[in-house]
Design a protein around this nucleic acid. Sequence first.
DNA 1: ACAAAAGTGTTGTTTTTACACCCATGA
DNA 2: TCATGGGTGTAAAAACAACACTTTTGT
Lengths: 248, 248
Amino acid sequence: MLTKDELEQFWAEGNKTYLDHISIDCVVFGFHEGQMKVLMLKSKNEKDWYLPGGFLKIEEPIDDAANRILKDRTGLEKIFLRQFRVFAAPDRTKHHNDLYHDNPFFKQRFISVGYYALVDFFDVTPTADAFSEVCTWRDLEDLPTFQLDHELIFNTALDTLRLQLSYQPIGYNLMPKEFTMPELQKLYETILGKKLDRRNFQRRMLGFGILNKLDQTRKGGAHKAPYLYSFDLENYKAALKEGLKSGW
Amino acid sequence: MLTKDELEQFWAEGNKTYLDHISIDCVVFGFHEGQMKVLMLKSKNEKDWYLPGGFLKIEEPIDDAANRILKDRTGLEKIFLRQFRVFAAPDRTKHHNDLYHDNPFFKQRFISVGYYALVDFFDVTPTADAFSEVCTWRDLEDLPTFQLDHELIFNTALDTLRLQLSYQPIGYNLMPKEFTMPELQKLYETILGKKLDRRNFQRRMLGFGILNKLDQTRKGGAHKAPYLYSFDLENYKAALKEGLKSGW
DNA sequence: ACAAAAGTGTTGTTTTTACACCCATGA
DNA sequence: TCATGGGTGTAAAAACAACACTTTTGT
């Protein structure tokens, strides 16, 4: 981890590398065995936690930037990130603007583009970068205090995720390649925070036509071995684009 | 309308007033009597049309900026604008960057925050500002060629609007305060581009619980006078937040 | 009186919900 | 052999889709 001096030196030339006024913050939801967590960072200098974020390079496509930032700051790669909102209250970075008022890059106003993602948190090992002391999964039931407006960004992402659940498929990039129906159900129950009926869930899910039933089963529990499924990527993507229920 | 020289002079000091790199573009859908249009501008110097857009002032909240820009450029006020996506391809403003390469403000990369709105186009009179020659409603069936990436912005807004229709209420800020069920139905039919059954539409709409039936009727047609309705704003807003169909 | 468009109700079909029994597996 | 959890089907209720006749109004 860098010292405060090293950090300030690094950022002193920030505006040669990065576009002014624009930042990116990522809300990465992690799911595993019925638990939902969010990926957060903390630095030694500061008591509050924050979401992995960073800045847009001068000639960089913004989705590339979101992926680069997530990889650099947390070690997570090849995560599907989805843009969901811009956070642009004029005073949203006031605390940092004041704290780094002698830094030409940090003293400016930033508007932040929010991205969110869902991953299986067992698949990935968060790794703090040089700017952070800690990078870890925090349970949704036991969240720390957030820096700046990161609690708003987090809550907006969670609302977006829950709303998305009712009209779009979910789970690819989050479930392993092969998974059982009860595992997928746990994902839905975790996001929604409530229990669902096993049989109806299965019927409905299959009705969407985005799953392939495999011939194998997953052994290992003291019970009947459940079938494995995988996503039918083509149909899944079509459903992402068009929505799950035609509605009208 | 300003001359090109006046225009360049105005923008020469752009970066004293506006934040670098950030712009706003508005897609205003207008609806009236079964027709859907979009508000567009054109300037004398350029052959292509563009969406009303502008820049974010140094200390300005972004939603305020969107409303200010729409008012300044088109005369439209008190329109509900909804942020829907950021457009940030590195070369999206290349054409303007080259065209105004001697202008320190215009030669930079811009990322644009997209807003969309729905209004009754009979309620408002578009008025071009000093930068534009024409400000008018263009029929969705007869669109001109767009400047820059404005066609992408427009199409994304339309997709967002159509998807929104299936899980959120729509029509407030678009219908007049009091309206008839057939009028509301026309809105849905126009957005969706297909006919709906009168009776089923009414049943479903009422089922959402976001309408108040008024005692008056609207006379004037050579037929039975339809009842007037208004939106129940409280329920409407709740439905916006939570979605119309619980889904799960 | 006629044409145009709105009001309203019923019926068959599909979707959703609620619920229970049997089966495979590991301990 | 027992406990655990998964596989599957059915019946009742609710939602939806299709459909037609009557009423009001202006001409």
